[in-house]
Amino acid sequence: MDVTFGLAHLSALHLDPPSLVTAASEAGFAAVGVRVFPATGTEARYPIAAGAPMTAETVRRCRSTGVSVLDVEAFTLDGARGPAEWMPALEAGAELGARVLNVIGGDPDSSRLQDTLAVLAADASRFGIRPCLEPISYQCVDTVAKAARLAEGTGAGIMLDVLHFVRAGGTVADLEALPTGVVEVIQLCDGPATVPDLPTPTELPLGQSVDGSSRQIESRAHRLTPGSGVFPLSDILRALPNVPISVEVPSAARVAREGAGAHLKDLHRATTTLLTSPDTAGVR
């Protein structure tokens, strides 16, 4: 069975985009996600913009390895950001060949958020990119049901992060109730049944914020390899057949201990094992 899937940038955020493409190819991944906009206020930003040397080098490495860019991330709609902030992200995404822009719903005014999302979707369509809301369990948009209601009629989709789906109490029935085709990407990882009591890291790649709850620290730095936790991954994948997968498993301790190359190869091996298991085979 020929199983292909991609790698989310958060799995190796310390690698700049060109290095990420090379490392992903060496580990066996077919695609990557690229962070073009900071997800937290303390983050540094890679110089990845339309026309920038790093963007050109990323495209060159994609062509030489056959790795594609599936999505660019992570743009938070907070009630204040608009075209002046998202157009550079869309332009960079278009140059990289991405078809999805990861969007976080951080605006507590749901009516305004939906209106802004519609404008973003209209702008993004000119670049062949679809904005996709990622429900995050500690953000304003925390469930797939909320994301689906906001996306309705805007042209936007959903990026399903399995960690946040489980932590927000999501069920397979929630996925089965979604409109066909609204989920564009599944960000795959695993975890324990409940949020572990995690130590606060001294630092995270790119200067990501180390403040926040254990749920936030788990999300940024302590996810488990697919198949090594208790999340109902096969059930989720069967409910969303043929949706592209992006493996998102940041593990700061493991990368420090074993190196990024070993970490990414293990992610690819574990995900292949999951996707070819009797419970999951045939849904990709």
Rank of each mutant, 00 (worst) to 15 (best):
L160N: 04
L160Q: 07
D161I: 13
D161P: 11
D161T: 09
D161Y: 12
D161F: 13
V162I: 15
V162G: 03
V162W: 06
L163F: 15
L163G: 00
L163T: 00
H164E: 01
H164G: 04
H164I: 14
H164W: 13
H164K: 07
F165Q: 00
F165A: 00
F165D: 00
F165R: 01
F165C: 02
V166N: 04
V166A: 04
R167C: 02
R167H: 03
A168N: 02
G169W: 00
G169E: 02
G170W: 02
G170V: 02
T171G: 01
T171P: 09
A173I: 00
L175N: 01
L175F: 01
L175W: 03
L175S: 03
L175A: 01
E176L: 14
E176K: 15
L178K: 09
P179V: 13
P179D: 11
T180P: 00
G181Y: 12
G181T: 03
V182S: 05
V183Y: 03
V183N: 05
V183D: 01
E184D: 13
E184L: 13
E184H: 14
E184V: 04
V185D: 00
V185Y: 05
V185M: 11
I186N: 06
I186S: 02
Q187M: 10
Q187C: 10
Q187Y: 10
Q187S: 07
L188G: 10
L188R: 00
L188W: 02
C189D: 11
D190V: 14
D190K: 12
D190R: 11
D190I: 14
G191L: 04
G191K: 05
G191T: 07
P192T: 10
P192Q: 07
A193M: 05
A193Y: 01
V195A: 08
V195R: 04
V195T: 15
D197L: 09
D197N: 05
D197M: 01
L198V: 09
P199R: 11
P199F: 09
P199C: 06
T200S: 09
P201H: 07
P201A: 04
P201C: 08
T202C: 12
T202I: 10
L204M: 15
L204C: 06
P205L: 10
P205I: 06
L206C: 14
L206K: 08
G207F: 06
Q208T: 05
Q208R: 14
S209M: 06
V210N: 01
V210E: 04
D211P: 03
G212F: 10
G212R: 02
S214P: 11
S214I: 01
S214Y: 13
R215A: 15
R215W: 11
Q216T: 06
I217Y: 08
I217N: 07
I217S: 08
E218H: 10
E218P: 11
E218K: 08
E218W: 11
E218D: 11
